[in-house]
Amino acid sequence: MTDHDTPDLPAGIEAAAARLTAAADSRIPCAPVREFLGREDIDAAYEVQRRISVGRSAAGARRVGAKIGLTAPAVQQQFGVFRPDFGVLFDDMMYAHTEPLPLNRFLQPRAEGEIAFVLGRDIDRPGAGVADVLRATEFVLPAIEIVDSRITGWDLAITDTVADNASSGAFVLGTTPHPLSGLDLSRVGMVLQRDGEPVSFGAGHACLGSPVVAVAWLARELAAREQPLRAGDVVMSGALGPMVPIGGPGRYRLALDGLGEVEAVIEEETK
Rank of each mutant, 00 (worst) to 15 (best):
V244S: 09
K67C: 07
L240R: 12
T2V: 00
F171A: 09
E268R: 14
H205Y: 13
Q108K: 14
D184P: 00
R194K: 07
A116W: 06
D233V: 03
L119H: 08
I13N: 14
G258S: 08
E221P: 02
V118Q: 07
D148G: 04
P179E: 15
L119M: 08
R220M: 08
S26T: 12
F106W: 10
A128R: 13
F82I: 00
P7F: 00
F90L: 14
L134V: 13
G204V: 02
R27T: 01
P84N: 06
G182C: 12
A22W: 02
A136L: 07
F86D: 15
G248P: 09
R220Y: 08
A24I: 03
D8S: 14
L37S: 01
A206V: 02
V262A: 13
G189D: 11
V265N: 01
L103D: 02
I246A: 07
R125V: 13
L208R: 04
A17D: 12
E221I: 01
T152F: 03
Q78K: 13
L20R: 11
A45W: 02
K67G: 11
Y95C: 11
L156W: 15
L89D: 10
A216V: 05
E35Y: 04
T6Y: 00
L180T: 04
L192W: 00
N104C: 06
P228Q: 03
M1E: 04
S200V: 01
I144T: 07
D124E: 13
I52C: 12
T98N: 13
G127H: 11
D92M: 05
G209L: 08
A166F: 03
G196W: 04
F106Y: 15
G209H: 05
A15Q: 15
A206T: 14
P100R: 09
V33C: 01
E47N: 03
D122I: 09
A74M: 14
H4Y: 12
E14R: 13
D122L: 13
L185C: 11
L70T: 09
S149W: 02
A136D: 12
V262S: 11
S149G: 04
D124A: 15
L254C: 13
R220C: 13
